[in-house]
Design a protein around this nucleic acid. Structure first.
Length: 258
DNA sequence: ATGGCTGAGCTACTCAGA
């Protein structure tokens, strides 16, 4: 099974790029972040035509997450955490992989900049609520796949210039500690599981040739519980969509799991 | 060292992104 995750920076502005990507890659499930639209304006029909059902947690202008899927997803849930700001940042469901039932969680973590603002406090709070709920379901020995735009640079090697990001909400030590907390609950960063020291990025900003200079960040991740390690086949950061015309600033990350 | 770009909503400009 191929599961992909992509922050598309508007599903409507990106529709052609997304359709091309799906046709080329043929994922079973594509998790989208930053769809920037309400469900009523989500291009469901375009995805239906190429064989995908949509499950959407939308919001006008900002945020918004969705699953596009060829396989059955059960128990879709839009309130995994109780967001004090009521922003659309998380959608969950359940899939069956052979004999295993797996909870799939698609997240768009708040950006949190600037760090001396209420936005940073919201990011911390959001992560705390998220971790608390993950902790509870891990206790029950469930199998979990979490993916999406974490807005967290885990380590120095995940950033083209760590010094520059010291006081940025993506790399601030308090935020990286939250990521460590998740890992310490028994979750595994799949990219690092396969590639211990590899430098690869999932995001390049739109400014001043960042893409051409490879000034990137690794902020989109797949985390899985340890009971799924034996099922992992492959992880790939697919840079092709970032190289196209009118790209998202993020590129998809793809997990193959059997 | 800073500002560079993009999208939504709306139609002038702000907010948000990271």
């Amino acid at each position: 099974m191929l599961i992909a995750s992509w922050n598309v920076n508007s599903v409507r502005a990106r529709i052609e790029n997304i359709l091309t990507y799906i046709k080329e890659t043929n994922p079973d499930i594509l998790m989208l972040q930053e769809i920037k639209t309400e469900e009523k304006n989500f291009p469901k029909e375009a995805f239906k035509e190429i064989g995908y059902n949509s499950f959407i947690f939308g919001q006008k202008s900002y945020n918004g997450v969705a699953f596009l899927t060829k396989v059955k997803i059960n128990n879709i849930c839009l309130d995994f955490i109780k967001d004090p700001k009521k922003q659309s940042r998380i959608i969950t469901g359940e899939i069956n992989l052979k004999v295993k039932k797996i909870k799939i969680i698609n997240i768009y973590v708040p950006n949190g900049n600037p760090i001396d603002s209420e936005k940073f406090d919201y990011k911390i709070k959001w992560l705390e609520m998220f971790i608390k709920n993950i902790k509870n379901i891990i206790k029950k020995k469930e199998s979990i796949i979490i993916s999406g735009d974490f807005n967290i640079i885990p380590e120095e090697i995940d950033c083209y210039n760590a010094k520059k990001f010291e006081n940025d909400a993506l790399f601030k030590i308090e935020i990286r500690k939250k990521y460590r907390e998740l890992i310490n609950l028994g979750l595994n960063d799949v990219f690092r599981h396969f590639y211990k020291n590899k430098i690869e990025y999932t995001y390049w900003d739109y400014f001043a040739g960042s893409w051409q200079k490879n000034n990137g960040l690794r902020i989109d991740h797949f985390l899985v519980t340890s009971n799924l390690i034996e099922n992992l086949k492959k992880i790939n950061i697919n840079k092709k969509p970032r190289s196209k015309q009118k790209p998202s600033d993020h590129t998809p990350i793809e997990l193959e799991i059997n």
